[in-house]
C-alpha cells in the first residue's frame, strides 16, 4: 500500500500534463476533423524551447512558458496556412499525410540542429512530504499549470467571441459559415491553440523527464489513447482521460512489469475505439 499510493499520486500529476497535450489534439479534431500527426513533434519543440530559454538565458521554465505559448500559437497558425488550408476539404487522408509531412520536417530539422542526444532541464522546485507520499515540486507546479490552462481554455471557448466562433464551427462548420463566421480564420486559430497546448505540455514535461527531439512521438501516442478514452473532440474528456492514463501508469507497475504498460494502454485504446468510439466518457 505504501508503494501504491505514491506511485498513483505521481501518475496522476503526470496525467494532468498528458491531459493538456491530449486536449490540443482533441481540440483540433473536434473543430477541423484533422488528426494532427505533427502533435508529438510540436511537443518536442515545446521541450526544446523551454530548454533553450533555461540553458541560455537562465529563464525560469514556468516564465519561459509564456514565450512558448506565444511562439507556438504563431507557429500553429503558420503551419495551418502552409500545410493544411489547401487540403482541409480534401478528406482525412490528405490532412493526415499533410500533418505527417510537417512532423517529418520538424523532426528532420530538429535532428539536424539538436542531434538526438538527450537533454534535461536541471531545475528543482523542492518537494513536499505528506505521510508516505513525496510530491516533487516540478510535478506539482506542472499539474497546477495544467489546471490553470484548462480553466483558461474553458473561459476562452465559452466567454470570448473567437472562442464561441470556434465552438460554433466545431458544432457545424457549414451553419457557422452561413452565420458569417469566417471559418478559415477560426480553423487557423483552433490549430494554433491545439499546437500551443502541445508545446506547453512538452515544456512542462521537460521539467521532469530527460528528452530528445524524438521524445514527442511517445507522448503523441499517449495523446491518441487519451483522446479516444475521453472521446475525440471533447476537451474535458481529454483532461480526465489524461488523469486516467496517468493513474493507470502509476498502478500497473505495482502488479506487473513496467514494460507491459504500453501493451495494456494500446489494447485499451483499440478496444475503446472498436466498442465505443465516442469514448468512455461519451460525447455528442
Amino acid at each position: 500500500m505504501t508503494q501504491i499510493l505514491p506511485s498513483i499520486v505521481d501518475g496522476l500529476l503526470i496525467g494532468f500534463v498528458y491531459g493538456v497535450a491530449a486536449m490540443g489534439l482533441t481540440l483540433i479534431w473536434g473543430v477541423m476533423r484533422v488528426i494532427n500527426l505533427g502533435h508529438g513533434a510540436t511537443m518536442a519543440l515545446g521541450m526544446f524551447c523551454t530548454y533553450l530559454l533555461f540553458a541560455h538565458f537562465a529563464l525560469n521554465p514556468y516564465l519561459g512558458m509564456v514565450a512558448v505559448v506565444i511562439l507556438s500559437l504563431l507557429f500553429g497558425v503558420i503551419i495551418y496556412g502552409v500545410a493544411l488550408q489547401r487540403v482541409i476539404q480534401a478528406g482525412y487522408l490528405s490532412t493526415l499525410l499533410a500533418t505527417f509531412a510537417v512532423n517529418m520536417i520538424i523532426i528532420g530539422l530538429g535532428t539536424w540542429v539538436f542531434t538526438t542526444s538527450p537533454r534535461n532541464i536541471d531545475f528543482s522546485a523542492g518537494s513536499i512530504t505528506i505521510g508516505p507520499v513525496i510530491l516533487q515540486g516540478t510535478r506539482l507546479l506542472a499539474a497546477l499549470a495544467a489546471v490553470v490552462i484548462t480553466g483558461a481554455l474553458y473561459l476562452f471557448l465559452h466567454f470570448t467571441r473567437p472562442g464561441k466562433a470556434i465552438r460554433a464551427v466545431s458544432n457545424n462548420r457549414a451553419a457557422a459559415e452561413l452565420m458569417g463566421i469566417p471559418s478559415s480564420y477560426v480553423l487557423a486559430l483552433a490549430f494554433g491553440l491545439g499546437t500551443m497546448l502541445a508545446a506547453v505540455a512538452g515544456g512542462l514535461t521537460s521539467t521532469f523527464f530527460p528528452f530528445t527531439i524524438l521524445s514527442g512521438s511517445t507522448y503523441q501516442l499517449k495523446s491518441f489513447v487519451i483522446c479516444v478514452l475521453g472521446g475525440l473532440g471533447n476537451p474535458l474528456g481529454a483532461l480526465l482521460g489524461g488523469l486516467f492514463l496517468g493513474g493507470l501508469e502509476g498502478i500497473i507497475p505495482t502488479f506487473m512489469p513496467v514494460s507491459w504498460v504500453p501493451v495494456v494502454e494500446f489494447v485499451l485504446f483499440v478496444l475503446v475505439l472498436v466498442v465505443k468510439p465516442t469514448g468512455l466518457l461519451g460525447s455528442k
Binding site: 499525410l97 520536417i105 520538424i106 528532420g108
Partner: peptide, 14 residues
C-alpha cells in the same frame, strides 16, 4: 533527408 522527404510528401499532398 527526413526533412526533405517530409517536404516532398507535403508538396505531393498539396
Amino acid at each position: 533527408h527526413l526533412a526533405l522527404s517530409g517536404g516532398i510528401l507535403l508538396l505531393i499532398v498539396l
